[in-house]
Design a protein around this nucleic acid. Sequence first.
DNA 1: TCATTGATTGAGTGTATACTCATTGACTAC
DNA 2: GTAGTCAATGAGTATACACTCAATCAATGA
Lengths: 200, 200
Amino acid sequence: MATKRKQQKAFTRRIIFETAKEMFLQRGFISVSTAEIAREAGVAHGTLFVHFPTREDLVLDVVDSEMEQAQRRIDGMMEESADFIKLAGKYLEFVSEHEAFYAQLAKELPFFSPEMRDKIIFRQAIVQMQFLDIMKSDFPCDRKNGTRFEDVVRHFFGMLHYYLCMKDAYNQEGSTVARFKDSLLNTIQTLLGTCKRDQP
Amino acid sequence: MATKRKQQKAFTRRIIFETAKEMFLQRGFISVSTAEIAREAGVAHGTLFVHFPTREDLVLDVVDSEMEQAQRRIDGMMEESADFIKLAGKYLEFVSEHEAFYAQLAKELPFFSPEMRDKIIFRQAIVQMQFLDIMKSDFPCDRKNGTRFEDVVRHFFGMLHYYLCMKDAYNQEGSTVARFKDSLLNTIQTLLGTCKRDQP
DNA sequence: TCATTGATTGAGTGTATACTCATTGACTAC
DNA sequence: GTAGTCAATGAGTATACACTCAATCAATGA
C-alpha cells in the first residue's frame, strides 16, 4: 500500500538522488559535499543520511544506476550490429551523449574506494572482452606481423579514456568524444586494415 | 658566505624537499599531509612553513624540479636520434624509469590548481610538437587517406597517459610502461608504415 | 479521538587539515 | 663578552567535512 508517508519518503529520496547526480556530473564525485547536495535539494543535512547511510552509498547508487543503464544499451548495440566499426561508432555516440558522467568517472576512478574501483573496472573489462570477440569474428584472422587484436581493443578504450580525461584541457563547447570520434575510428580501421578478411 | 646558520637552513629545506618528494611519488601529491611530511622528515610541523609558505609551493617545487630534469633529458634525446621510433623508444624508457612520478602526475593532474595544470600541459604540448616535427621529417610525406601524423602523435601520448593511469589496475611488480613499450612502438610503426618514405 | 509511528530537522560532535605565532636558544657580529 | 638575529618549535586557530541524535509534528490506525 502506498501510504502518504511512504510516497513522501520515496519522493524525498528521489529528489536527493537526482540533485546529487546532477551535481556529481557537473562538478565531480569528490568535490561536492553532502551539505551542498542537501541545500540544493531543499532538505535538511540530516535528511540525506536518513536515505543514504554514508556519502559513499549515495555515490555508489548514482554510479551503479548509470552503469546499468549503459550495460543495457551496449547489449542492445551488440545484438544489432556484427560490424565492428559500426558497433564502435555507436558506442562512442553513446559515451558522448553521457560524456559528463564518463569524464568524471575516468578522472576520479583512481580515488574511489577499492571495492567501487574493482566493480567499475570489472564492468569495463567485460565490455572490452565483448568488443574483442566481435572484432575477432568480424575480422576472422590474426596476422603474424603487425598489431594484435588485443592491442587494437586496448587502443580503442585507452584513447577513449584519454579523451575523457583531457576534456577540461580542450575546454570547448560540446562533446570531446564526438569531436575525435572519426579520427579514432579511422585509426582503428587502419590498424585492422592490414589484416585481410577471409570472407568477402 | 656560508655561515653555519645558512648551511643548516639549506640542509633542513633539502631534507623536507627530499622527504616530500619521496612520499609524493609513493602516495600521490594529494593524499600526503604537511604534518606527515614534517614528521617523516624529523622536523616540527611549523618548520615546513618556514621553508615553503604554502603546501602548494612545496608541491610545485617538487613537480618543477622533476620536469626540468625531464626536459633536459628529452632535449638530449632529440639531438641524438632523428629516427622517430628510436626516439619514442628512448622516451618510453625514460618515463618508465620515472614511472612513479609520471603515474601520479597523470592521475592527479585534473585536481591540481589551474596555474599548475596549465604549466604542465604547456610543457607536455611542447614535447608533443617536437615529436611531431621529428616524425614529419623522418617520414616526409603526408598521405591522402589513412592516419594523419597528428593522430599518431596523439595516439602515442594518449596511450602513454592511459598506461600510467592504469598502473594500479595492472597491479604488478615493475614498470607498466616498460611492459607495454614494444606493443606501443609496434602500433605506432604500423600506423606510420602505410606511408611510404620519399627518401631511402 | 488520540496514542503511536516515523520522516524530517538542524544544532552539535568528532576529526582532519593547512597554516600561525609567541617563545626558545644557538649562532653571529661588534 | 654580549646584544641582537633568526631558524626552529609545537601548541593553538580556523575551516571544512561526514555523520549523529534528541526534538518535532504530521500521518496513521485502533
